[in-house]
Nucleic acid binder design. Structure first.
Lengths: 271, 271
DNA sequence: ATTTCAATGTCGCCT
DNA sequence: AGGCGACGTTGAAAT
């Protein structure tokens, strides 16, 4: 860790060298921030954490909250510079042109982490794709007698999640949402149904919204448009996938965590 | 900074004490992560930065990218615990029920920042609301002779940004976007126009999409629906607002930064 | 508390 | 590279 009491010029030099070595940099201190680009913002003085990643991503974090107050997704040009008693971090990104500047009036800590390696891949379960594919393989969860015709079929206004035929031979458009459906989802489904009705004039086309939940207004809109809602339990599908996938899908939370480490001991369920 | 070579039990105790004192905690090290809640994910071993904020927000950052690979927005229950040779961070959030666990197999650095204060307010310029209100005050930027009837008027499917009347007495629905408009924006506008035509059958209703740009497909869709695109320069509006607002709106990027600090010296425009 | 909608959204996938 | 749609979206305003 660098000594925070150093002159800004020394700090700037060391941190720029760290940037060249593609290190991750943490700076804790008092600063103000200015951003100009797709939008523009100003932020007065406060205590913050600033992270500069090896790829040029910059994050300015306040003491609270999930999201950074200011940031730069990744930028080719990142540099520290002294400015009187202050240390300035400037990050410029092209396409779109965006400039982020952080002026530290006090640096409490500066930490440099070199040679970080993270080859692991994030395995995500039950995103919309997985839910959609599962429902396509098990259309009886949507409706008894439903036969799937196609998955991810492009029509005029977009792509239909699941296209099927019901027990009475009617075309069924299924729109899948993994979270509570709002009005937007209903209108999306309505567009697809309309497009398919135009495609086959006269043929009956039903529209089904399959989601774990739906907002009240969305349900009203859905009903007024003659469309249908079908509740699907994401938890149930997840459990089912876990059961069927067996070991391939991996164990539960605690199993995963205690399994792969240097130590095999388990910890008690703390509150 | 805590010594990383310490036994996990010691580290856990110190970090939990820091949590109680509402400190911000940084841990750099090798870890694996498991999440279960709205979705579920697993992440194998890698070098990462973990941030725990005083409000219970947890961020797990890889060496690259803007967004954390795993996180917890803010949680009441956050605790460190030893597990064999490992240090475990467990964060539980209710409503929705979500659990995040980080298992450190190696801790390279642990930093505790206490008493961070950040009272400053972020001042953001030219969000959609500001752009819409400016256009409502200066409808000539959309079209000469346009008179504004109402702003943010609710109709059936949503809220019309600007409702106006053109020089020939026709109703004009204006949909404002602060970024490049896509198909979604066109369909949104189309829905509003349709709703207003139903409201006043027979009366002519025009639809205008006002945005700094539009994608090719969106423009084709717009034309096919008989709607219109009007280019508005966000930069020009921003400059105009800066000029009119005067000092209240604040100076430009460099002016703001060199103005408020302990030192008044300016830095050269570095590359 | 719920719902809606914008966002410097970001990110991955596809053309 | 541009467009498109999902996201553990997040966040704020309005109901």
């Amino acid at each position: 860790m660098l000594e925070p009491s150093r002159p800004p010029a020394d700090l700037a030099r060391e941190l720029n060298e760290a940037l060249r070595r593609r290190a991750l940099i943490l700076v804790l201190g008092r600063c103000r921030v200015a951003y100009e680009g797709r939008s523009a913002s100003r932020l007065g003085e406060g205590d913050r954490l600033v992270v500069v990643k090896p790829d040029g991503a910059v994050l300015v974090h306040r003491p609270t909250g999930y999201s950074p107050v200011n940031w730069q997704p990744d930028s080719k040009v990142v540099a520290f510079a002294p400015s009187g008693d202050s240390l300035v971090l400037r990050s410029v990104r092209e396409r779109p042109r965006e400039v982020l500047e952080v002026v530290f009036t006090r640096v409490d800590a500066a930490l440099v982490a070199e040679g970080m390696e993270d080859p692991a891949e994030l395995v995500m379960y039950l995103d919309e794709r997985e839910l959609r594919d599962y429902l396509a393989r098990h259309p009886e969860l949507i409706e008894p007698g439903l036969r799937v015709v196609s998955v991810e079929r492009p029509v005029g206004p977009g792509v239909v999640d699941i296209l099927a035929v019901d027990s009475r031979g009617r075309t069924v458009v299924v729109e899948v949402k993994r979270a509570t459906a709002g009005r937007e989802a209903v209108l999306q489904l309505a567009r697809y149904v309309e497009a398919l009705r135009r495609l086959n004039p006269g043929a009956p086309v039903r529209g089904v919204l399959a989601a774990p939940g739906i907002t009240r207004q969305a349900l009203e809109l859905l009903n007024s448009l003659g469309l249908e809602f079908r509740r699907v339990s994401v938890e149930r599908v997840y459990e089912e996938l876990r059961r069927r996938g067996g070991g391939a899908r991996g164990p539960g939370l605690l199993g995963f965590l205690s399994g792969g480490g240097a130590s095999g001991s388990s910890r008690g369920g703390s509150g």
